[in-house]
């Protein structure tokens, strides 16, 4: 057993949270306070293992990577990549959707690329994605989620010929998740701050798919789109 998995088992036993244990005492605070106990274990472990890291983290952050991923509970980015605190700047929303008019993701991109000057952006979609799955169907998800997933349903419409040839619902949703990552990268490439960073300091963009059953990250090969609009000031 590695140190990490030993630590994980320790934390789990410490906070009494089996991964599938039913949560019976909803209104009671016990189970909740156990999460705070889990945090105490984390703090002690980190302080012991890497006291210097703690000190440098308190001084500031300089992450190299902006991670844009799904809110899905099964993809804790820092854990699945075994990264240290400080390495990934993170934005997670439903189905890792990016739209140019979204103030939330636009602010994350502006701050991480423009201010923190990350060197790479990873957009990570995943298999078994509830959002992609819902977007493959016509179910009414309520006004909020219908609006949010409209761009993904639009992708389905655009690529319906390709999608309809796929053998299973699973395969269709997985392909739609890929198309969605591709589309998000296109949105990023249209962002003036991202364009400037690509031009001036070679910012790199990557599309990835995380396969939940295999727990593996797969890098997607996405060709750069041509003839994107960019502000004339960028070319001066």
């Amino acid at each position: 057993m590695s140190i990490l998995s030993r630590f994980r088992s320790f934390v789990y036993s410490c906070i009494g949270l089996g991964r599938s244990k039913a949560f019976s005492t909803v209104a009671q605070m016990d189970a909740f306070e156990k999460v705070l106990a889990g945090n105490k274990a984390y703090a002690q472990h980190t302080a012991k293992k890497d006291p210097e890291l703690m000190k440098s983290l308190a001084a500031g952050q300089s992450p190299e990577i902006l991670w844009i991923g799904c809110a899905d509970s099964r993809i804790p980015e820092t854990t699945i990549c075994q990264c240290k605190p400080g390495e990934l700047f993170v934005h997670r929303n439903i189905a890792n959707v990016l739209t140019p008019g979204d103030a939330n993701s636009s602010s994350v991109i502006e701050y991480s690329v423009g201010v923190l000057k990350v060197k790479r952006i990873i957009v990570c979609g995943h298999t078994k994605c509830g959002g992609a799955n819902a977007a493959m169907g016509d179910g009414d998800l309520g006004d909020t989620l219908n609006s949010w997933l409209a761009p993904v349903r639009e992708l389905r419409r655009k690529h319906i010929d390709e999608l309809s040839k796929l053998p299973s619902e699973d395969a269709k949703a997985n392909r739609l998740a890929e198309l969605n990552v591709e589309h998000s990268l296109e949105i990023l490439r249209k962002n003036p701050t991202v364009q400037k960073a690509i031009r001036e300091r070679d910012l790199k963009l990557h599309g990835m798919i995380y396969d939940i059953p295999a727990a593996e990250l797969r890098s997607m090969d996405i060709p750069e789109p041509k003839q994107l609009w960019s502000p004339p000031t960028l070319h001066r």
């Binding site: 906070i15 274990a41 984390y42 099964r74 854990t79 605190p85």
Partner: peptide, 11 residues
Amino acid sequence: PANQIMGLGPG
């Protein structure tokens, strides 16, 4: 890192 600071795993 949200999961790690709470001692919680995937899912």
